[in-house]
Design a protein around this nucleic acid. Structure first.
Lengths: 139, 139
DNA sequence: TTGCGTGCAAAGGTTTTGCATGGCA
DNA sequence: TGCCATGCAAAACCTTTGCACGCAA
């Protein structure tokens, strides 16, 4: 990783704080800006985007692009992604994030590397779809 | 389905024609507009978006939202959409997008549904990682 | 002829960029 | 002190919308 040295500033702490508070769901840059304002710690939108980009690069948060209308969403992941290889399933309806560990999925990475020459990065990959609850609610 | 009655116009034919020509990849509305211009059959961008929306509703084409920077992408599906699903692999280095069709990956969806109660949506899912070329360039 | 489709331009939204200022180490 | 981060505003996008006109049926 070894990113360019960066200062720790009040703004960055506040941004991270909001992201942590909302780690169970993902929020847009706009919502984040609103939250910061409500907390009495407003941060310029440009700074927000710049830091969000950086955090996504570092793997601390994850960037989602589900709908081009609402724009990109961000979600705090934190240090969890080091512990063990697991995949993320994200429900496009309820927006819940599921962590899944399973041999079949672990082999997936091996297979893709062997047969398609592509090395999957689990920390950046999310499988989108419908969770059980939301599928049942639809019917 | 049963959409409202709609006229067949020159513009719609041209749009569909370009989409069919590029059915092996997906293109943005902007690129589509450019292609139409190069073919000597320019179509207003508003018309393009309106028709694209309609086609996506009807299932003739598919709308992807992979990256908020480039905007939504569209791909002609036509009658094919029954035959096989394909996955997207995106290189985080060169940002190239790879389309992969393979039985192993097709079974993945079946497995996840059966064992984790989660129904993957291929049109929204992208596996991130490193492509062969970029891995070799690094070393 | 009637009503839908089209094109233009403007509006709306998200994201990026340039630049001067201020703050951290 | 020397950079880097920040904020503001403007710019650059993509996408949608309103409206008058033209064309398909």
């Amino acid at each position: 990783m070894a990113r360019s040295s960066s200062y720790n500033t009040r703004q960055k702490e506040h941004i991270l704080s909001i992201l942590r508070e909302n780690s169970s769901r993902h929020i847009t840059a706009g919502i984040l800006a609103l939250c910061l304002q409500e907390h009495g710690t407003p941060v310029g939108i440009a700074t927000i985007y710049r830091y969000l980009d950086q955090l996504a690069d570092e793997g601390i948060i994850r960037k989602y692009t589900i709908d081009s209308k609402t724009g990109a969403c961000y979600q705090y992941i934190g240090e969890r992604h080091n512990c063990s290889e697991h995949f993320h399933l994200k429900c496009v309806k309820c927006e819940k994030l599921f962590h899944v560990e399973c041999d079949y999925l672990s082999e997936l990475g091996t297979h893709i590397l062997a047969h398609h020459g592509f090395q999957v990065d689990h920390t950046k990959t999310v499988l989108y779809g419908w969770c059980k609850n939301c599928r049942e609610d639809e019917n």
